[in-house]
Simulated scan of single mutants.
Amino acid sequence: MKYLKVITSIALVTTLFYAYNSIAQNSNINSKNKNKMETQNEEIVNVALIYLKESEKARFEEYKKKGGAILEKYGGKIERIIQPKMLAKGNLELPDEIHFASYPSIEVFNKFNEDPEFVKIRNEYAVPAIKDISIFTSRNTDFEFKKETGDKTKTYGVALIYFNNGQKYAKLFEEYHDKVCTIMPEFGTHFERFIAPFQSKGNIKQPDEIHRFYFDSMEGLQEMETDERMKSLFPKRDASLKNLYFFIGEASL
């Protein structure tokens, strides 16, 4: 099974999200203290880590179907649903699903959540089905990258990233980041999202950034483990972060 191969090389897998984050300045990363009005007319991405009650999957599927139809009326969409199969880094109960939903703006996001029809569906289907949930409302970072779109045949990674405080850590990571970004594409890693949460709900602490990406093959990731260029950069990477949760799973959407 492809996930068993990953377990044998956790150090390799957890390097992937480090390589492409936008840590140029702490003021860009620490968006939680910014005024929410800065998100006006900007795309918003809502990320939800969802824990379902036992035997409530069918009810929750009905919620996704009905709620998603209303979301589309507002110009939004559920862009990706990932079912985690393992937690490659961190200490956290594995969620049943991780949802990424996009909205044209924070204004649309708020209107959708206040829509009477959606509130009714949420109370009827989602509330009884969900055991726990953590939600991170996010904006796009200013990091420039080639955005690519995978499909349900791919293996996905989702990283919740927590940076160390201080400019010296930002500088250290920049040195790592600049070099690794020239290496990683050789091994078939594709990036879909780089977002920075600015508000959150739930028990999981709000991360500084959330990254989503997919892989051409797990073999390509394993090859990276023996790449001497990558290995020489790991110490700078390890000193840059305070904490992280790194999920690997499959997409159901």
Rank of each mutant, 00 (worst) to 15 (best):
K5L: 14
V6L: 15
I7D: 07
T8Q: 15
L12M: 12
L16G: 03
L16M: 12
F17T: 04
Y20F: 12
S22I: 04
N26C: 03
N33Q: 09
N46E: 14
V47Q: 03
Y51S: 10
E54Q: 15
S55R: 15
K57G: 09
R59A: 09
F60K: 11
E61T: 02
K66Y: 05
G76F: 01
K77E: 08
E79L: 01
Q83R: 13
M86Y: 04
L87F: 04
L87H: 02
L87G: 02
L92R: 11
E93R: 10
L94P: 07
P95Y: 05
I98P: 05
A101E: 10
S102W: 00
V108R: 01
F112S: 01
F112H: 11
N113Y: 12
P116N: 02
F118D: 02
V119H: 06
I121Q: 08
Y125D: 04
V127C: 00
I130Y: 09
I130K: 13
D132N: 15
I135G: 01
N140I: 06
F143L: 05
K146V: 09
E148T: 15
T149N: 10
G150P: 08
D151R: 04
K152F: 03
T153K: 15
Y156I: 02
Y162S: 04
F163W: 13
K171M: 13
K171W: 08
E174T: 14
D178I: 07
P185V: 03
F187P: 02
T189Y: 06
E192Y: 01
A196P: 01
F198Q: 05
Q199C: 05
K201E: 11
K201T: 14
I204C: 00
K205Y: 00
E209I: 02
R212H: 07
R212C: 14
R212V: 11
Y214D: 00
F215Q: 05
E219Y: 12
E223R: 15
M224P: 01
M224R: 12
F246C: 03
